[in-house]
Nucleic acid binder design. Sequence first.
DNA 1: ATGGATGCAAAGGGTTTGCAGACGA
DNA 2: TCGTCTGCAAACCCTTTGCATCCAT
Lengths: 142, 142
Amino acid sequence: MRSVEEMVRVLRQRGLRITPQRRAILELLASDASHPTAEELFRRTREKLPDISRMTVYSTLGELVSMGELVEMRTDVEGVGRYDPNTDSHHHLLCLRCRSLVDIPARPGGVHISVPDALGYRIVRSQVTLYGYCPACQRAEG
Amino acid sequence: MRSVEEMVRVLRQRGLRITPQRRAILELLASDASHPTAEELFRRTREKLPDISRMTVYSTLGELVSMGELVEMRTDVEGVGRYDPNTDSHHHLLCLRCRSLVDIPARPGGVHISVPDALGYRIVRSQVTLYGYCPACQRAEG
DNA sequence: ATGGATGCAAAGGGTTTGCAGACGA
DNA sequence: TCGTCTGCAAACCCTTTGCATCCAT
């Protein structure tokens, strides 16, 4: 995700208002690489704005997603939506024990993906998620 | 997924009983490459067994998943779980318009994935899903 | 016959909807 | 001021849980 000020400008260009609630959500997203859920963002915004409602969080996330400034994602093993401020092409790594989700750069030494001819489909996006156990959880479990 | 008879044998080996409900679910899964949801399987089993309950479907799917005979998956854009009888390594292609989900073979000319060193994670499974528009929906939308 | 499986009901989590009142532009 | 945004409540969908009854073995 871009900086908070860039995002504010983008929202204004679209005719959307900058409320304290929206600003708080943007500030959290701009500094969060943990792929938080709506509930986590709700809990954290409430620390600054105790009266914010869950619904405002969902609504703002929905706006950002439809604007293409935020990506909604899910994993195979979780029903909840997670929100990814990183709109560049990259992949994901989920720890099946602690449920932490981290980014993998798309190219350098990481995962490589190529689609020569996907059955005539016009591809607009790809999702690559690896499931495993992070170093800390490997030590903890043995 | 293996044939129905193979699955019946596997279930018996695990001490599980072969009820008409379970057999009906196995029969549907063995001949279904559409990655159905629990609700779709419930609806289709009810055509043969009108008194089957949704809960029996969930329960049987859960058994098969925990046995590794069935894979539960989700896409970025859907909250529901889908069930994949194909436990071989392969990838997926989702049409964002009609929501049909098809398999892509893992290797021949399709997607290639390699993980030299995934940040010290021990990888146990990978998920690759491409999002786009199928040929029929491209024609329909233009 | 006996313990696992079924089906019902209810509860649970995540998300969406409808609307009166509040407030950013 | 005006039109959007907020927050509440309720509803919705998907899934899980608890339990009495049933039935495959």
